[in-house]
Design a protein around this nucleic acid. Sequence first.
DNA 1: AACAAGATGCAACGGTGTTGCATCTTAATG
DNA 2: CATTAAGATGCAACACCGTTGCATCTTGTT
Lengths: 140, 140
Amino acid sequence: MITDDILHNLKDRGHRLTKIRTAVISMLWLSDVPLSAFEIKASLEKDKIKANKTTIYREVSFLRTNGILHEIQFGDGKMRYKICPDDHHHHTICVRCSRVEAISMEKDLEKYERELVRLKRFKVLRHTLEFFGICSRCNA
Amino acid sequence: MITDDILHNLKDRGHRLTKIRTAVISMLWLSDVPLSAFEIKASLEKDKIKANKTTIYREVSFLRTNGILHEIQFGDGKMRYKICPDDHHHHTICVRCSRVEAISMEKDLEKYERELVRLKRFKVLRHTLEFFGICSRCNA
DNA sequence: AACAAGATGCAACGGTGTTGCATCTTAATG
DNA sequence: CATTAAGATGCAACACCGTTGCATCTTGTT
């Protein structure tokens, strides 16, 4: 299991493996959509693990600092968090059922980023790209 | 002046031209970066025009409904608003000086959206794309 | 078992944005 | 110019996301 690798890696670097930490990691790993802080909290509670919202925010902050978890913004005012072995995917987000899927268009964007440097002398550090629409299930 | 066109257009459609409305329009038109609600409020106050934050939110909502103003998200949790003749949603945002420039890659993205329909049966309604980095001025 | 660093909970707070309601302004009408 | 009704504004209160300070509890090491 990859979550075990993550846990061992954290421990080897001198970090603690608390109940909440391991729960957040395994839960986010199993989730196929990025979750907000509140959703993480709710999901833990379903497994009978109570955690204060402050703890959740501090935990995602910790996991982000350690490169385990990544933030995504869907433009509704809340951060969402996901565990992704290779950072950066873009997503399709269904506006009806909220289903999220990762897609890849790195090659096209890398080409475009090179053009931005060449034409506008703008050095891209990061970007955001999300598509909102109707997924295949909802459209059927 | 284009702001006059906007004002006449609004009036012709039966909307009122209040002090705050005209001030928001001309101020946003002159601004070369998208502004948050708070920044709009502060900018009006610099011109001795006081406005309640509720009024600002209602005004940007009104202007958005009338297709005059567009929202942009930079991922810091606040909406920003910009007057743009053609609704144009991609930008380079300098993380040092906050300068924002519009860029065009519609053709590439339209191609990609057609592929999303074809391959994943995902119908794109809208998307977000912003590049964060260092602009030519800051990099010099 | 003792201990220090780290994790947690709680309360309070700040910021963004919204809503209900009372009041004021705009612009059209007589 | 006075009237008037719709629309605009201000105010207070609220909801929500996220953060901070501080006291307390856990973890893992000695």
